[in-house]
Amino acid sequence: MPPAIAAHALSRSFNNFLAVDNISLAVEPGQFFGFLGPNGAGKSTTIKMLTGLLAPSAGSIQILGEDLIANPVEVKRYIGVVPEGMALFGKLTASEYLTFVGRMYGLDKQTTQQRTTELLEFMGLADQQKKLIADFSHGMGKKLALAAAVIHGPKVLFLDEPFEGVDAIAAQTLKSMLQGMISRGATIFLTSHVLEIVERLCSHIAIINKGHIVASGSLDELRAGVQARLAPGLEADSNARLTLEQIFLNIIGGESGPARPEQELTWLG
């Protein structure tokens, strides 16, 4: 069975700046994959390339065994995306937007209507029938973008910061939905700065820094790797499980080097 997402030797440069440098990754079907990195590491550039929003300078991308660059239309039928900008149309209502998206993904009228109703109710947006999307709060927009990303029942879902601006209750609902999708065999590729969420949801993680993948594997594998590196210093705490935040800081800190004392901003209060 081919990987759900496979990127090989993927690079992207902007003028002379190499944002993503020769990365390769494979996400197996059914995995909840977390893609982490500090600001400007290349996360959004990578997700844009994987979803067809940005052309790679070099490399190849396969989704469920299909080449994204050669067969973009075919591939896009099987993926759902919540991009950075949410891809919403301000002059439509939520219901009109979902209907539009459903039809764009080739669903028939009846199915689109049924799923629109179901999704709006599920997302708690059913009582916003007349309000235009332009008048939505950020969190409401996020929920709608997520609803639009799943309306066609994608097999692979890409989520760029899906929980940003979403309230705790709604976040809980969304997490349940995503876990449900995983249990039915879908693959989810998620970026988030909220490491607690990634730790709770994702089974596999890759960390990107300065355009390179610096760590990749299951959470336990990453933990073991970091613990092995820190073994002498952590012997007293060897029973304590490292959190994802500690793992992340260790890997990125190790890459970038800790802040030197002379770098401290002593003029700050």
């Binding site: 039809r103 080739g106 199915t111 708690g124 449900g180």
Partner: peptide, 24 residues
Amino acid sequence: ASARRPSSTAAPLTVAPLAAASIT
């Protein structure tokens, strides 16, 4: 009409895969 479950126990949404939907 169709009362929602409490969020904490919300059942995963049953979105049928694309293949099941007929093409317009």
